[in-house]
Write a protein that binds this DNA or RNA. Structure first.
Lengths: 231, 231
DNA sequence: GGGTCAATTCTTGTATCCAAGTTTGTATCC
DNA sequence: GGATACAAACTTGGATACAAGAATTGACCC
């Protein structure tokens, strides 16, 4: 896991450390939505003053991972139906565009790279290695962006994934989903290697739609972690 | 010009004021790229301490409008070819998706709304009202997102526009471009009203491509405002 | 026992001070 | 005159102190 948060920073400081720590805590769901976190508390844990913690909070707020209101306790953001919808739209738009580009530009070496990644995904499945599969999943989507010549697209995908991924930790029966996801990846890779942009895009959209069912199921079972969006 | 920066904030504070002020200064190009801005200076101007200014700087940094490095003077971000490319890709992806949705869902009332907006754009052209046209241009794209049922898409478009729009201020002969842009809008509206998603998307892509020529021209004439990206 | 009100405690917002590093200006030497 | 070195001023980063508001807890009254 390389630097996930600050892609364009040259010197890592204390605030980066704090951001990375809280980022991991939140996205791994060790800090549940609604959990209150206070600046002095974190500051004491890191042995620093409140100032760097404040800066870190501001960064996490920009990532929409925490909710900070004046004079009120800062808390880990709950899931919001609107935010999920927005995130899904954004990912769909960006991923479709990246897939189309990748399908247009995919050469022989690129195809091999995709195949290699999928082969490793099969290995992870055989070993029931969920964490490893998660990393390979990221890698697969990143490869697509790079093949398409739009590496920055992955920044968006990763950022949006971060907002929703922690939700999926609540989901059960991951092993059930892995074969399905690998099959999706194979269909996507096939379309890209066939230089068929539309097929690649629609395969990607199908892949994304798997999330919808998962999220819908999670939502009814974990209403406490969702904002009560009375609209 | 309503609240442009903080869409999900309930109470406007001092930092919001400072952010809005600097945001306007930077995007309007009254503060040129490379201009150094210091915390104490801004703090004195607003009659507050450095702390709120610090927070404001962090927010503007997250918007990629300023560049703050440790122990070095903070400056207005220069244009970067990579950032422009990323922004363009993001806008294209999101706008294409929004246009497709709008074309799918456009009803009669929606069509009238688009026509009304375009009619006002003609008025602005006749009166040579550039500022008014700019507002209407924003409004047109926002209407598309709302018709498509993806209002949040406009948040992305607006945010990305902010990073590039100031560049276009450097461009000359705006009046030359206005008729062209209005014609584009008419083509887009026609495709949407005809419920033709692909035509709408490609018309939108053509519309976006107008920017490329403008930016390329600006770049060679204003190299000083661009990062020297030796890559 | 339940409800209401007040005080205490906890939260973030702001101001000020000190530290560390960069830049810039100046004086001096060649 | 040009280059170099030193020093002063200016920059942000971090720590600490104080202020204002929100929430919780407790006591007191009904």
């Amino acid at each position: 896991m390389t630097r996930m948060i600050t892609p364009t920073q040259d010197k890592r400081g204390i605030v980066d450390e704090i951001v990375d720590f809280l980022y991991a805590e939140i996205t791994s769901l060790r800090l549940l939505p609604g959990t209150r976190i206070s600046e002095p508390d974190i500051a004491e844990r890191f042995g620093v003053s409140r100032q760097p913690v404040r800066d870190a909070f501001r960064r996490l707020e920009a990532m929409e991972l925490i909710l900070v209101r004046p004079k009120k306790a800062t808390e880990v953001r709950k899931f919001s139906a609107l935010a999920i919808e927005k995130s899904r739209f954004l990912r769909a738009a960006v991923e479709a565009a990246a897939l189309r580009e990748a399908a247009k530009k995919c050469g022989k070496a690129d195809g091999f790279q995709l195949d290699a990644c999928i082969a490793m995904q099969h290995r992870a499945l055989a070993q029931n290695d969920h964490a490893g599969f998660g990393v390979l999943d990221y890698e697969f989507h990143q490869q697509i962006c790079q093949i398409g010549g739009v590496p920055y697209a992955f920044d968006v995908i990763r950022a949006e994934k971060a907002k929703v991924d922690r939700l999926c930790v609540l989901g059960l029966a991951k092993e059930r989903r892995m074969p399905e996801l690998i099959a999706d990846h194979e269909a996507i890779a096939a379309a890209i290697k066939a230089n068929d942009p539309e097929a690649a895009a629609s395969a990607g959209m199908l892949h994304l739609s798997r999330l919808d069912e998962t999220i819908a199921a999670i939502r009814i079972n974990n209403a406490a972690y969702f904002e009560d969006d009375r609209s």
